[in-house]
Design a protein around this nucleic acid. Structure first.
Lengths: 203, 203
DNA sequence: ACGTTTTGCAAGCACTCACTTGCTATGGTC
DNA sequence: GACCATAGCAAGTGAGTGCTTGCAAAACGT
C-alpha cells in the first residue's frame, strides 16, 4: 500500500525546490555536508530526480549558488547624492540586512572558496558591484562639494562596507559583536565615516 | 622487507605533529574534509596512533584549534597612549598580519561554528580580548585629552577592527579587496578612524 | 485516446568514512 | 634481562557517499 501524495505537496516545481533546499543545506553544512540524499529528501523528491535535473552534485550546487545570488541583490545608492547622511545610512542598513539574511551562506562560501574557487566569482559579484556603487556615489558627492576629505574614497568605502559586512555575518556567532545592537552599530559606522570625510551633512 | 625510517624523520613528537597537521588540513578542507586518514598520513603516523592519542576525530580537532589559538596571539596596545598615530598604526598592521596569517583557519572556523559551536569560544578568545584592549586604550586616550570625539568608542573600535580583520581574511580570495595594497589599506583605515575621533596625533 | 515528459521506486556499484581488534616490534628504565 | 609505554601493521565493521540502471506509474498536451 502506497500513500501517494507527491501531487499534493508540490508548492513550486521540482527544480526550484531542489535549488532552494540545496542552498539551505549548503549554508548549514558546507559542500561536503550537502549530500544528494539529504537534498533530495528535504525537497521531498527522489534522489534520482536530482541527478536527472542537474547531472551531478557539483552542477546542482553551482546552479544553487548562482540562483540565490541573482535573486536577492544588495541595495543601491542614488545616482546623485542629495541627503548624504540619510542616503548613506539607508544604504548601510540595507547592506547589513542583506549580509545578515545571507550570513550562513556567505560564511560557508567564504570557507569553500579554498576548495571550490569556481564559486567565488558568481557569489561575490553582488558585493563587488555594491562597493563600486558606493565609491561612485562618494566621488560624486565630493565633486558636489559635500565632502572635504581629499584622501582615497576607495579606502573609506572599503572600511565602511567591510565593517558593516563583517558585523552582519558574524553577529550572534562571534562573541564581542553584540556590544551594540545592529542598527545602532551601522548608524555609528556611517556617522564615523561622515566625520572622517568631513562631510557637510544636509539632512 | 620493511624500510623502517620512523625514527629518522620525527622532528617533533607525534602528538604535536598530529596537532599541526590537523590544523592545516582543517583550514584547507573543513571539519568533514579533515579525515583521520589524511591527518595521520600527512603527519607520517599510523591512523591507529591518532586514535590512541586523541580518542576521536572530534577531540583531535578541538585540541588542535585550541593549540593553535593559544600559540599565536594578536598584538597588544600599550597601557597608556603616548603616540596615538604610531601606536594605533602598529597595532592595526599587527592585527592585519595576524588575520592574514590565519586567514584560512579563520574562514573555515567561521563557517563551522554553525555545526560545531564548541569551537567558537576557544577560537574567538584572542580577537575578543584584542577588541577590549583597543577600547581600553582609546578610552584612556580620551581621558588624556588626545581624543575629542564624545560618541561610542566601542563602535569606533569595532569599525576599525572589523574592517582590518575582514580585509585580512578575504584579501586574495574575494575580488574587490585588492584595490589598495594591504598596508596602505590599514594605514588609511587608521587615519580615517583618527580623523573621525578628532584625534590630536602627536607623532 | 495517444504519446511524451516527468517522476517514483528498488536495487546496486565502488568507494570512503570513523573507529576497533589483535598482534608485533622498538626504545628507554630499573 | 625484565618491564612497559609507545609505535606499527593488517584486517575488518557498519554506515554513508555520489551516481547508475531498469522499470512502472503518473502528469500533461494534443
Amino acid at each position: 500500500m502506497v500513500y501517494a501524495l507527491p501531487y499534493i505537496c508540490r508548492p513550486m516545481d521540482t527544480k526550484h525546490a531542489l535549488l532552494q533546499v540545496a542552498v539551505e543545506i549548503f549554508a548549514d553544512s558546507g559542500w561536503r555536508g550537502t549530500t544528494t540524499r539529504r537534498v533530495a529528501e528535504a525537497a521531498g523528491v527522489n534522489e534520482v530526480t536530482l541527478f536527472r535535473h542537474f547531472g551531478s552534485k557539483e552542477m546542482l550546487l553551482q546552479a544553487a549558488i548562482q540562483w540565490v545570488a541573482a535573486r536577492d541583490l544588495p541595495p543601491r545608492l542614488p545616482e546623485t547624492p542629495e541627503h548624504l547622511g540619510t542616503e548613506l545610512l539607508g544604504w548601510g542598513l540595507g547592506i547589513h540586512m542583506h549580509a545578515t539574511r545571507h550570513a550562513k551562506v556567505i560564511r560557508t562560501a567564504l570557507a569553500e572558496f579554498e576548495e571550490h574557487p569556481e564559486l567565488a566569482p558568481v557569489a561575490c559579484e553582488g558585493s563587488a558591484s555594491a562597493g563600486e556603487d558606493a565609491v561612485r556615489y562618494l566621488t560624486r558627492a565630493r565633486e558636489l562639494g559635500l565632502i572635504a576629505y581629499e584622501g582615497s574614497l576607495e579606502a573609506a568605502t572599503m572600511m565602511l562596507m567591510q565593517a558593516i559586512f563583517m558585523d552582519g555575518i558574524t553577529r550572534g556567532v562571534v562573541s564581542g559583536c553584540d556590544l551594540l545592537p545592529a542598527d545602532e552599530a551601522v548608524r555609528a559606522f556611517v556617522d564615523l565615516t561622515l566625520r572622517a570625510l568631513d562631510a557637510r551633512v544636509v539632512a
